[in-house]
């Protein structure tokens, strides 16, 4: 493993609030993998929800704050493909800080790609004897290219699968529609509520009909949405962020 210097942990606002366990798992996992990780406590939301709702121009402040918060780190790692994609591609240009912004866009990584591409860890030793279904969140999947897309003619790959499949006893479940959107979509979840719910139900059905025991993924936002529907309909399936599974498996 190459020597990795200072890592700034970026925890999306809703994960900090609703899913502290996911953030803790991310931190512990990185520490177990030999990283020195710091969580700068001044961090706030990255501005993605506003930008996707059509108010990118109003997020210059948040973007600037983000740059300042993380400027001293060699890497920024977050357990969310969606927020990472936002910082990389949709942060509005911050006047006077353009070069810092460019640097930041190149040093920010989603958790699984950080493990496979920067730490260059191909496999994680551990055991996790469960049937796991993977929800490929679109922003990680087609935005960050964390896995091959079913639409493209390319050699199949999947960074999360690469890590999970090494765990002893873990059964990776093949889905009928392996990378269909779950219908979360940020504000879409409320502005197009009926569609959002239907899409979520359909995604859940794909997992449940394949006897998935634990549904996992790299973005808690999608999982929050799916879990919300499953819980309302008393469906029998558990939900975990991939950081929780990996962290549990190696302890």
């Amino acid at each position: 493993m190459p020597q990795v210097n200072k890592i700034g942990l970026f925890i999306p606002c809703y994960v900090d609030q609703f899913y502290p366990n996911v953030a803790i798992a991310t931190l512990e996992l990185l520490e177990k993998l030999g990283c020195e990780v710091v969580y700068p406590s001044g961090q706030t939301c990255c501005g993605q929800p506003m930008a996707n709702a059509g108010y990118e121009r109003d997020t210059v402040g948040t973007a600037k704050h983000f740059l300042k918060t993380f400027k001293d780190f060699d890497y920024i790692v977050a357990p969310s493909g969606s927020c990472v994609l936002h910082v990389k591609e949709h942060s509005p240009s911050v006047p006077g800080l353009e070069s810092e912004q460019q640097v930041t866009q190149h040093k920010i990584y989603e958790l699984t790609e950080f493990i496979t591409d920067v730490l260059k860890i191909d496999s994680i030793q551990g055991s996790y004897p469960h049937k796991v279904g993977y929800h490929a969140s679109c922003h990680g999947q087609r935005g960050l290219r964390l896995a091959s897309a079913s639409e493209l003619h390319e050699t199949p790959f999947n960074k999360a699968r690469q890590l999970l499949q090494q765990l002893e006893g873990l059964e990776w479940v093949e889905l009928t529609r392996k990378d269909e959107c779950c219908g979360f979509g940020g504000t879409f979840a409320v502005t197009e509520e009926a569609l959002s719910i239907q899409m979520g139900k359909d995604r859940l059905e794909d997992h449940i009909s394949h006897d998935v025991e634990i549904l996992t993924g790299g973005d808690m936002s999608c999982i929050m949405h799916l879990q919300g529907i499953a819980s309302r309909n008393k469906q029998n399936i558990q939900f975990k962020h991939i950081a929780e599974i990996l962290n549990e498996a190696i302890s």
Binding site: I11, V15, D16, Q17, F18, Y19, P20, N21, A23, I24, L27, Y39, S41, A189, V190, E193, I197, G200, M224, H225, Q227, G228, I229, S231, R232
Partner: peptide
């Protein structure tokens, strides 16, 4: 609350990650 019409809200944890971090690191 459009979110809650057909979806449950996540349960609220006792503390945020920020608070946990302050205590544990």
């Amino acid at each position: 609350n459009t979110w809650g019409k057909q979806r449950d809200l996540p349960e609220l944890p006792k503390e945020t990650f920020k608070d946990w971090y302050k205590k544990n690191r």
